[in-house]
Amino acid sequence: MVGKALKWVSFLFFAVMLIWGLTLIHPFGEPLQSDMDSYFIQNAQKECAANNVVTSIVFDYRGFDTLGEATVLFTAVMGVTAIFRGVMKK
């Protein structure tokens, strides 16, 4: 009985807090700080010579992110191969 009441109270508390937070969120499509976005939009086509600004950010301006992502994938595949290395012989 008490457990059920506690469940409902915590659910209502979480839902009210979530909806309250959603009302406080910033309006969609109007970022607070747009200096970096304006720089990329103005200069990315000239500096990287590519039409797709997202790719020029991912592979050029923020290349370390992509390097880390590729390393994570490599490590994951290494782990899977190490686990299943005996399977191929059967």
Binding site: C48, A49, A50, N51, T55, S56, F59, D60, T66
Partner: peptide, 8 residues
């Protein structure tokens, strides 16, 4: 176009 982007 693209410089190093297509090889990467």
């Amino acid at each position: 176009t693209g410089g190093t982007l297509p090889p990467m």
